[in-house]
């Protein structure tokens, strides 16, 4: 057991190191961008004096490394700084938006993960049947279309032709839980269609990969039913690759939702991110990037740990 804890601790430390490197890359990347907020706010006609004064006021005149360490130090104390555009606390600004993004991702995950794994298991069970082929065709088609296209198709069918769901997912903190679920249904479905194929095909492939193992032949010769063989004998051994793909897709649900949020005008982190880039609101962009990176790292860490835990050799040493 201690072995596993050490392993988790190691991964965690590695994750923190990665996060540090990422923060450096984010800062340098943004530093390389031409122009800053002053030019965006004051416009082309501003005199150099006003620009310099404004820059001084915002602290943009300090050397990069000073600004980086101030920024990093602030974050370590939970202070992401203030938005340059509207002077609001970034942690507050991002907090609400990030909660919305997580909510949407969670709904999409609750629909897509069980759906993908079930479809994958069924496809493996009825390999090369009509069912298997149709599931493959449908999921592959849905992943092949651009997200915004899938989104507009869904809007056309489910909001315009048949008015089941709202086409704009504007939520506010005072909405009830089910009302929220109802409003994010279309973006959640869009995301589901985008991520299901990957997870479903990995589940199917990992299971089929194992069907040639001697222990599956043994299970056959023990007279077990096909469904028991797949679910009880193949699936537990296929978990590691499946978990990894699920987590990559979960990460995508959080960090890759920019387009879907824009299409459905959903007040998530992705929208904020896009707006801030346009406004050159550097601290917000940096903060959002860091949140995305942290989510990604944390989810991959979870995948690593879960894969380790799904291996009986590590869980039950000699």
């Amino acid at each position: 057991m201690t072995e596993i804890l050490t392993m988790v601790a190691q991964r965690l430390a590695l994750g923190l190191l990665t996060l540090f490197v990422v923060s450096l890359i984010i800062f340098l990347g943004i530093e390389l961008l031409p122009g800053d907020l002053t030019e965006a706010v004051l416009g082309q006609s501003a005199t150099p004096e006003t620009v310099a004064a404004f820059r001084r006021e915002l602290g943009l005149d300090l050397p990069p490394h000073t600004r980086y360490f101030e920024w990093l130090g602030g974050i370590l104390q939970g202070d992401f700084g203030k938005s340059l555009a509207n002077q609001r606390e970034i942690s507050e600004l991002i907090g609400v938006r990030f909660a919305n993004t997580l909510f949407l991702a969670a709904i999409a995950a609750i629909i897509s993960v069980p759906l993908a794994v079930t479809l994958g298991v069924l496809a493996a069970l009825h390999r090369n049947s009509f069912f298997d082929r149709s599931v493959n065709v449908v999921t592959l088609s849905s992943i092949s279309f651009p997200e915004f296209f899938v989104a507009y198709i869904l809007i056309l069918f489910l909001a315009v032709n048949v008015n089941i769901f709202p086409s704009i997912s504007n939520v506010s903190p005072d909405l009830g839980f089910w009302e929220r679920v109802y409003r994010v249904m279309l973006p959640a479905l869009t995301l589901t269609l985008v991520v299901v194929a990957h997870m479903m095909r990995m589940t199917r492939a990992s299971i089929i990969n194992l069907l040639a193992s001697p222990y599956i032949e043994m299970a056959n010769l023990k007279g077990l039913s096909r469904s028991r063989i797949i679910v009880h004998h193949a699936l537990p051994n296929a978990l590691a690759p499946i978990i990894n793909v699920i987590v990559i897709n979960l990460a995508y649900l959080v960090v890759g939702v920019v387009i879907v949020e824009v299409v459905f005008v959903y007040p998530g982190l992705g929208q904020l991110f896009v707006d801030s880039v346009i406004k050159r609101d550097v601290p917000v962009v940096q903060g959002s990037c860091l949140i995305f990176a942290a989510t990604y790292i944390l989810l991959n860490l979870t995948a690593d740990v879960l894969s380790i835990l799904s291996n009986p050799r590590l869980l039950h040493p000699k």
Binding site: S213, P214, Y215, E217, M218, A219, N220, L221, K222, G223, L224, S225, H232, H233, P236, N237, P312, R313
Partner: peptide, 25 residues
């Protein structure tokens, strides 16, 4: 019918027990 016979009336012992036992159970 074959499934009912396999394991209950005719059983199999494989060459490599290490490979033929499911590692997860």
């Amino acid at each position: 019918t074959k499934r009912e016979i396999r394991g209950s009336r005719i059983a199999y012992v494989a060459q490599s027990a290490a490979a033929s036992f499911n590692p997860a159970h």
